[in-house]
């Protein structure tokens, strides 16, 4: 229904204003404050002066922090890669399942979202720790085989391995869902045409399915990479002293170190990296669609 522009403006104001105010007051304004802090320095314990200095950023780029930043990037990239390798077959299986099974499988993928992350991480700890399910399970089998000697528990927790396992576990749904959405949209007759023309399943996957699902694949990668890069709880609970990620460092600045300006600078570095990832995505997607005139 078409309305007078004036009336439509009234409706727009009524429905659009509350969320806009919400966004400005509770998201953008605090963000601006943090951004300002990143150019400041501590005067007293509670007082921060905005001096416009770049010192916080210079400090953030020192080898100590740069190494943690790079390590975070490495963790996030590895997590994304493993999620993709695991998620692609899952997404393919769901998109080819019967409508009924499809619903159940999608539900199973989303089920972890309905449980608190903290509880899920503790559950993972119960599985991975030295006396956990895996180690005690292997130990039980070990003791049954004669001549193996005493069982040495596998170091499954408080190390980089545990962090990556935890990150993959938490972020797999973020990869599966966009991949599924892209694959489900794919015209089945294109896959059949490829098979009909003599291509095997693997050739069809790499020559037809992956190129056509590329926008979905890029979304899946970005959507997995960004939260994995900023992960806090997983490295905090599953990692060792040597597997800190950048979010853990930021948390320390805001709390135990009480150095808000430096924490703000680190936060914004992380945010700029996120922006860079999003920019990359839009470039890839645009180039993909760029085949058309």
């Amino acid at each position: 229904m078409l309305q007078r522009p004036g009336a439509a403006r009234g409706v727009f104001a009524a429905t659009g204003l509350p969320p806009i105010v919400w966004l400005l007051a509770l998201f953008l304004a605090p963000l601006a404050v943090i951004w300002a802090y990143s150019f400041g320095e501590n005067r007293t314990l509670v007082d921060i002066a905005i001096t416009g200095s770049w010192a916080n950023y210079a400090r953030a780029l020192k080898p100590l922090y740069l190494a943690i930043l790079l390590k975070s990037l490495g963790f996030a990239a590895l997590t994304t890669f493993i999620c993709f390798i695991l998620g692609l077959p899952v997404a393919l299986a769901i998109s080819f399942a019967s409508p009924r099974a499809k619903l159940l499988l999608l539900l199973a993928v989303m089920l972890p979202f309905w449980t608190n992350l903290l509880i899920r991480t503790y559950a993972l700890m119960a599985i991975l720790r030295t006396e956990g399910l895996i180690n005690s399970g292997i130990g039980a089998i070990w003791s049954l085989v004669p001549g193996l000697g005493p069982f040495e528990p596998l170091p499954l927790i408080n190390n980089n391995f545990a962090v990556v396992v935890g990150l993959v576990y938490v972020h797999l749904p973020f990869m599966v869902l966009p991949l599924y959405a892209a694959l489900d949209r794919l015209d089945r007759s294109l896959i059949e045409a490829s098979l009909d023309l003599g291509a095997g399943h693997l050739a069809t996957l790499f020559r037809v399915v992956v190129p056509l699902a590329l926008p979905g694949i890029v979304s899946g990668i970005i959507i997995t990479f960004i939260p994995a890069l900023g992960a806090y709880l997983t490295p905090d609970l599953l990692g060792g002293t040597n597997s800190q990620m950048i979010a853990n460092v930021i948390e320390r600045q805001f709390r135990s170190a009480n150095d808000w300006p430096f924490g703000a600078a680190l936060s914004f570095l992380l945010m700029y990296m996120t922006f860079a990832a999003l920019l990359l995505q839009s470039l890839i997607v645009r180039r993909h669609a760029g085949g058309a005139p």
């Binding site: 015209d187 007759s189 294109l190 059949e192 045409a193 490829s194 009909d196 023309l197 003599g198 291509a199 095997g200 050739a203 020559r207 037809v208 190129p211 056509l212 085949g291």
Partner: peptide, 25 residues
Amino acid sequence: NMVFQNYAVFPHMSVADNVAYGLKV
């Protein structure tokens, strides 16, 4: 070989690549 009802021409390949597909594989 089949000609599909909706033709199922690969949208990400040129005409020549479409025709060459079966020979390539």
